[in-house]
Design a binder for these strands. Structure first.
Lengths: 341, 341
DNA sequence: GTTAGCACTCGAAGCGAATGAGTGCTAACA
DNA sequence: TGTTAGCACTCATTCGCTTCGAGTGCTAAC
């Protein structure tokens, strides 16, 4: 679909105007506001063509035009130009770095907050997917006669721990010996690299204590593998209320509901590289059919390890969203890379 | 202030009706719905008296009556009778216990969810205040040349950890020795019991390594002392939208805003024993002037260690709220006591 | 002390006219 | 042939008006 320069300009005007005002826009307004030397009548003719192409639509016969979902898609794919972050926004992001040394959880929460502040949309952030990261250190810590604590530190300095319940837990000394063995074998490995031979070797060192080793390995695997264990942070849910398209209580409710459920959020945070824009019906989730989702992956060593996203109405400032998400994901990468050094 | 039996009945009818319908209630409706053998005219006279006492109010001269804040206070203090939890509600709470062994964080989140489900209000839950609990085990874990991880396990089996950055971190062996010393001295202690003499003793064992000990002690203290470190869990913020009193976007926004800020929530979670009901203006926080807050402490060994709360309009089903909060706090106590055994 | 009756108040709901922002179509113009 | 002015038409929104009914307070009679 190729449009004349003039049609492009008109479409752009409609999209831009509607994104900011949420009001249908008419030919006269375009002529006056975006004066491009042609009359409203001419613009009407062009608009009629754009409507035939399915790029814009009317709410009723005598209303102005609004972009259709197809129109947004066209805009995003073919017309949107990069919009660099405003100076203070970039500074705001950089300010986050200093505070967040060593505290992945805190830093992720702050990232979500920053995202929602800058986009005025609800934001979702997943912490780094551990399965893509390496084991830096393991430690077994005594809890009581029937339990020990397994602590896992990764190369991103994320710390995970879980209590392991056993029929009989080894004492402090024994745990120390096992800790040394575990580290010798597993240090620097990703979960995928804990394969048969590796486990055989561990079993050998553990002697008869398979009944201790196996639960521990199971938990290491589950800690790392289970996406379940990736924490999801949200922020700015209330921004939904500022959009007139969610004035209907039912609609706002559905969003709030989903934002409180890990499962529904996880589907939005599937790994990706780069940026993805999903508009309205293109969403698989029912509750997002009226919304747009902008997602970005962040990565370390070119491995995608996490996702950030914002949710808004289809009438979304896509250019702004893209620039903010780009900035924030770069920021996360910088911080995490610094942590992993 | 003493009221006749009949006035009490009328006030009760007004409070109950308004709590459930959010509509002002008139004399005729009371006569019909809560038929107590007297005519609407008589009820009008009684209502007029109740209004003079400041217990009920009118929105305009020809509207029905609604309870005033003073009326709610009177109701709560003098007329509200205990309402046991419905059978399925009690079962629902008990169901939570089984799932939540060993995972304080998960269990607190679930508790918040349960609270908001049962009351249909936003719920806030603080995890147990650690400073009231005992150190069960400490462990120093190597991270890299300039950092170590401090792991703290409490008698409630809560696990906390934080990375400690030092000019030069000891190696694995040295950390093990220090771990043994720390545990020998600090096991079973609350933070308050880590006093001068105790520190002197530790310093002695640590030899010249005060530069390692002091940061560690500082972090132990900050981990436990700082209320800052008590996590706060919220759930069901969206329930606010179902109350007509928050139809105004501004008002809903203020609540959502506050529910995302730890600081504002912490003020609501100040320790207490038993149950406290705070109605409208009685709140110190501006953003709560239109709301009621019902709070309950939970405790272990008669020590209050945490707080749960719900927020709603002043038109709140106080009886229900009290019974749910009572049930939930007992439930937490049971689970935590089981954990600490 | 209670009640019936009545005049009065006031918000909510319904209705119609006016308004104005928008359209499509046609005919004239460059 | 593309552009524009002009015109009739559409339709959501707003505003004033009336009606309706749920409520009140007051008075007089029981």
């Amino acid at each position: 679909m190729d449009l004349t320069e003039r049609k492009l300009k008109i479409l752009e005007a409609i999209v831009n105007d509607y994104i900011h005002t949420a009001e249908p826009i008419g030919s006269r307004t375009i002529a006056k506001k975006y004066g491009m030397g042609i009359s409203s009548a001419t613009i009407r003719n062009e608009m009629s063509d754009l409507e035939d192409l399915g790029l814009i639509a009317q709410l009723h016969t005598s209303s102005g035009r609004i972009p259709s979902q197809k129109g947004y898609r066209f805009y995003v794919d073919r017309m949107m130009h990069e919009q660099p972050l405003a100076g203070e926004e970039a500074l705001f992001l950089q300010g986050m770095i200093r505070q967040n040394i060593n505290q992945i959880e805190f830093m992720m929460q702050e990232t979500a907050k920053a995202l929602s502040r800058l986009t005025r949309c609800p934001a979702i952030v997943s912490e780094p997917y551990l399965k893509k990261t390496r084991i830096k250190h393991l430690q077994l810590v005594p809890v009581d006669e029937r339990a020990l604590l397994l602590v896992l530190i990764t190369d991103t300095k994320a710390v995970k721990n879980q209590v392991v319940t056993l029929p009989e837990a080894p004492g402090y000394e024994a745990l120390n010996r096992l800790t040394i063995i575990l580290n010798a074998q597993l240090h620097g490995k990703t979960v995928r690299e804990i394969d048969r031979p590796c486990i055989e070797k561990l079993l050998e060192f553990f002697g008869g204590q398979a009944h201790i080793l196996m639960p521990i390995l199971g938990i290491i695997a589950s800690m790392i593998q289970a996406e379940d264990d990736v924490r999801v942070f949200t922020s700015g849910a209330k921004n939904i209320l500022a959009f007139p398209e969610f004035a209907d209580r039912e609609k706002a409710n559905a969003i709030f509901q989903a934002l409180e459920e890990r499962e529904s959020l996880m589907t939005l945070l599937a790994p990706l590289t780069g940026i993805q824009i999903i508009i309205g019906d293109e969403n698989d989730n029912d509750w997002l059919k009226d919304c747009s989702l902008v997602r970005a992956g962040y990565s370390i060593d070119n491995q995608s390890i996490g996702t950030i996203a914002i949710i808004g109405p289809t009438r979304l400032d896509y250019a702004k969203a893209v620039s903010v998400l780009t900035g924030v994901s770069q920021n996360i990468q910088r911080v995490i890379t610094a942590l992993a050094h």
